[in-house]
Nucleic acid binder design. Structure first.
Lengths: 205, 205, 205, 205
DNA sequence: AATGAATGAGGGTTCATTCAT
DNA sequence: TATGAATGAACCCTCATTCAT
């Protein structure tokens, strides 16, 4: 009955699959070789696709990896946004711990991939990274606003900037540190710092 | 009788000058083109030196830029170490403000150069960056130890890690943020966070 | 009973339109990009047709442009042939002027297109160009034969060769000359040369 | 005694030889393959030189062939200029015959090379070709001026334009004509046309 | 200590062409 | 008739590096 549609769908499905295969291969090759040595020919080979096909989807090497990075951080943003709902009504200490823990975890997964991005293609990823930053700050700020009367801060936007930057800085440092502190202790200490900053120290554990 | 030395000195002086010229050129080219496009031939050209000469001083491209980055961060370390003497006896609030301010300033100078390093050759700079981190932590830890009884922290090493990472994270974010907070306010807020973390918030302004 | 034809005709009409669209697009792309950069993919795009369709009408890129050029020169030949009737009985001076003028005009139109052909795909156009030459010579020779007794030439074929080549050479030079003589004066001078050559100069103006 | 100079000369001599080898190879490959198929890699191979070396002398493929063509036509110009001295005082008929003959000959030599240039890279050669044209016209005009009182032309610049374009047009046509007239007869006829044009026909043979 | 001509692997990219739909 | 995803040979060109001078 409704035959015509399927007839065209396979074509699009194939294209979609090809596109995905190329992106996946890009990630693999980026991790295994680094950006410079990650040749488009190698990516195409790993993707099981001809080099010409790759260039039908991406105008050049940079665009390929930009797409990869953008998608990666878009996923991060989605994750963050899904987290916000469950945290908004949680007690302060719990929320802080959850947030800090989530960031630690997020970076622990795909460490190799993250490394590659942050070490070698920061410039390609900047817009996406910036996006994540801004979303994070918005989320944190919304939380701060909601709990304002219980906090000893005045400018929630500024506080959000400080908090997100500080915590991400710690996570970032952690990734590249040769000798790293014990994770749980660190996580606790970071949470402590955040809490003291927000409530003035006495109420914090 | 003391002829040999002069005879040799000009030679070494010339060599030294050549070496410097190459390093300087590297920095210029790195900023103007980025790492990938910064060819050794171009560096030699800018340095006013033949490509052969460049390779007499550096075994390969990477070594050239590693040397550049190492020197840069070594200077940073020296700066930090010179700072420590004048801070060790300063009151807490003052010391914190001085430290935070110094970091903000350091990164503000040579922003383009810093950008290039952090965006494109993080992997080459990692050892040097790590060194700066460790020295920073040591300095901070020494300070914390010296003021231990007045602070509400237990593990000074851990606290040093948290503080340095956090503050540097903020500075780092600042460098790439499209819309950045007003600098003085931010500096104050960061100092506030540090102080509250260290003394428990009530005593901090 | 005459259903089949209509049923088929639209189809052929569409095919014809497609064919035309491709040829037109070829000309456009040839002018805008030059032969080498004129990719078949681009031609198809400009024609509003898929690349597969293009290859249903032309076996390869060369054939496409050969067809374009052939058609162009075929039109030129037709034009020449239509001219001959009205000139055969005209007085010498008038015929010469008409002929020279016609050539000047023909090349003035579609100058960009002509340029492209003559500068970049002479090799593809050679057969067609040669055809135009030969037809031109036949036409001229017929005229010379008809007026033989009034002319001071012996070998009309040779004279036709000389005349056609010379006049076309002038027009050709004109197309690429950076600083070109005033057209009317040139046209007169060329006519003068032709007339003197044919009748000996004294009778010519 | 004067040793230093030779020590450096070999270096330059080598470079010079390399340059020449590449240009020669370009000509060979152009004739054997045509412009499009004349890959820079092939040229380097024929020159017995690495591809990198080729690109040390020429920024790109086009520049390579432009250099080749420019040099070729520069030689033509020199040839023409050397011819002018011996012709300025010669009798009209003789001068015309010498000039026409010289052009016929010039194009007969290196026909294959000329073909390649005129059929495939006219656009690269245009500036050079134009230069030859202009020099030719100047030479002819100088001659016409010198013999002005004996000639029945008014505007020598215009006449020079007409003559040079016409004769070169004929030679050009000749090169690509499938069935060409007997050369001596043609040469005579062309000379006849020129003479009749210049002196009015009666005095010409 | 310095030169710079020469190398050549390897890169990114294009584009004419095919063929399953 | 028409589509357009896929192909892959082949191209131009760069650049880190060497080495004879």
């Amino acid at each position: 009955m409704t035959l015509p549609q399927p007839r065209r769908l396979p074509v699009q499905a194939r294209a979609r699959a090809t596109f995905e295969a190329i992106l996946e291969a890009s990630a693999r090759v980026l991790v295994e070789r680094g950006y410079d040595a990650a040749s488009t020919n190698r990516v195409a080979e790993v993707a099981g696709v001809s080099i010409g096909t790759l260039y039908q989807y991406f105008p050049n090497k940079e665009a390929l990896f930009v797409a990869l990075i953008e998608r990666h951080f878009d996923e991060q943003v989605e994750l963050l946004q899904r987290m916000v709902g469950s945290l908004i009504d949680a007690p302060l200490a719990e929320a802080v711990r959850a947030y800090v823990g989530a960031l630690f975890e997020a970076h622990a997964n795909d460490k190799a991939f993250h490394d590659a991005i942050l070490q070698q293609v920061t410039h390609l990823g900047l817009p996406a990274i910036t996006r994540v930053h801004m979303v994070s700050r918005q989320i944190v700020q919304v939380y701060l606003e909601a709990h304002r009367e219980r906090l000893r801060i005045t400018d929630t936007a500024l506080a959000a900037f400080v908090l997100v930057s500080a915590v991400e800085g710690i996570v970032h440092t952690l990734m590249f540190a040769p000798e790293r502190p014990e994770l749980d202790a660190l996580s606790d200490e970071v949470s402590l710092m955040v809490l003291r900053y927000l409530v003035g120290g006495d109420d914090a554990g």
